[in-house]
Design a protein around this nucleic acid. Structure first.
Lengths: 184, 184
DNA sequence: GAGTCAATTCTAGCAGTGCTAGACATCCTG
DNA sequence: CAGGATGTCTAGCACTGCTAGAATTGACTC
C-alpha cells in the first residue's frame, strides 16, 4: 500500500516534470503563443484535464518553467561572479539571447512570482545577489546599483529580443554599460 | 459627387481615429488583454467587420495606437531636451509610468514597426534623437551611448511596470543611471 | 418621385483558445 | 470476485480573432 502510493507519487512527479519540459521545449522552438493546452497535452500524450490536475492553469505552467530558468541563470551568474560585473553581465546577456522564450517567461510575461519580497524564490534571489556581489562590500548604495545594472541589462536584452534594437550590437552596449557602472 | 465622396472620406477618417482612440482608452483603463475586437466594436458602435475595413487586424490597431504614442513621447522628450539627460530620462520614465498600456504597445508587445531602419516612423526617430542630443556633438560614441541609456531606462520602466521591481524606487534608479552616464 | 445598382454594414459562423463537469475506465482492497 | 476509490477522458462552455455572404442603406437615373 505504501509502496504503491509511493510509486504513484513518483510517476506523478515524473509527469509533472514532463509537462514543464514539454512546455519549455515547445516555447523555445515555436514561441509561447504556440504553447496551447491542447498542443501541450498532445505532446505529453495525455488529455488536457491532466494538465489541470498538476497545475492551476496555463499561467502556473509558465511560472514553473520560469522557476527552472531562475535556477539555471543563478548557476551561470554565480559561475561568472569571479570575473566581476563584466563577466556577470555578459553571462546574463548570453542567457537572454540563447534562451529567448525562457527569458521571456522569467522577466517579460505577466507573472505572480514575487520579486524583492519575503516569498521570493531562492534561485531568483541568488540571481540578484550575483549582481550585488559585483559591487564592493562597503559601497554605500550597493543594492541600488545592482538593481539598476540588472535593469539596464534587461532593457538591452528585451529590446534586442523583440526587434527594437539590432541584436548584433549587444557586445558594444555591454561594454558601455559595464564601463559606466564599474567606474562608479 | 466629388463633394459626397469627400464627405464620406472625412467620416471614414473620423471613424478611423475613433477606433484608435477607443482601443487606447480601453487598453489604458483595463489593459490590452481586455481589448477584444468585440468589445472594441461595441465601443465604437459598429460591428466587428468594420474594424477590418479600417485595419488589417487587431495588431494593426495596436500599431496605430503605438504610433500615436511615439508622437506624444517625442514631444515630451523634445521639451525636456534643454534640461539634458536628467530631464529627458525623467520625462521618459514619467511617460512610461503614467501611460503603461500605451508604453507597452510601443516597446513591449510584438510589433512590425521598424526601429533603427530606413522605414522608421519619424516620431520614433525623433524620440531616439532626443537621447542622442543629450551627449556632446563631438562624443565619439554618441549614438551608442544614446542607445544604451535608452535601453537602460526601458529596463527600469519595464521591470517596474510588470511588478518585478518596486515602482517607488524609480527616482533613485533614475539618479544612479543619469549620474553614471552623464559622467562619461 | 420610383427604380436601379453599387457601396456599406451586419448577421452568422469558422476554427481556435483556456478551462471544467460528468461519464468512464482502471486498479487496489476486503 | 464484488466494492469503492482513484485516475483519466470525452464532450462541452464561453470566449478569442477573423470572414463569407446576406441585408440594408443611400446615391443616381429616368
Amino acid at each position: 500500500m505504501s509502496a504503491i502510493t509511493e510509486r504513484r507519487e513518483r510517476e506523478r512527479a515524473q509527469r509533472h516534470q514532463l509537462i514543464i519540459t514539454a512546455a519549455r521545449e515547445l516555447a523555445e522552438t515555436e514561441g509561447w503563443e504556440a504553447v496551447t493546452t491542447r498542443r501541450l497535452a498532445e505532446r505529453v500524450e495525455y488529455s488536457q484535464p491532466v494538465l489541470y490536475s498538476h497545475f492551476n492553469g496555463k499561467e502556473a505552467i509558465m511560472r514553473a518553467v520560469a522557476l527552472e530558468g531562475f535556477g539555471e541563470l543563478a548557476a551561470l551568474l554565480r559561475a561568472a561572479q569571479p570575473g566581476g560585473l563584466r563577466a556577470v553581465a555578459g553571462a546574463y546577456l548570453a542567457f537572454a539571447a540563447e534562451r529567448p522564450a525562457l527569458y521571456q517567461a522569467m522577466f517579460v510575461l505577466p507573472t505572480d512570482v514575487k520579486f524583492a519580497h519575503a516569498e521570493t524564490p531562492p534561485a531568483l534571489r541568488a540571481c540578484f545577489d550575483a549582481f550585488v556581489g559585483c559591487f564592493a562590500a562597503g559601497h554605500p548604495r550597493r543594492e541600488l546599483f545592482a538593481e539598476v545594472s540588472w535593469g539596464a541589462l534587461h532593457g538591452i536584452a528585451a529590446l534586442a529580443e523583440n526587434g527594437r534594437i539590432p541584436p548584433e550590437g549587444q557586445a558594444d552596449r555591454l561594454d558601455v554599460l559595464v564601463t559606466q557602472f564599474a567606474g562608479g
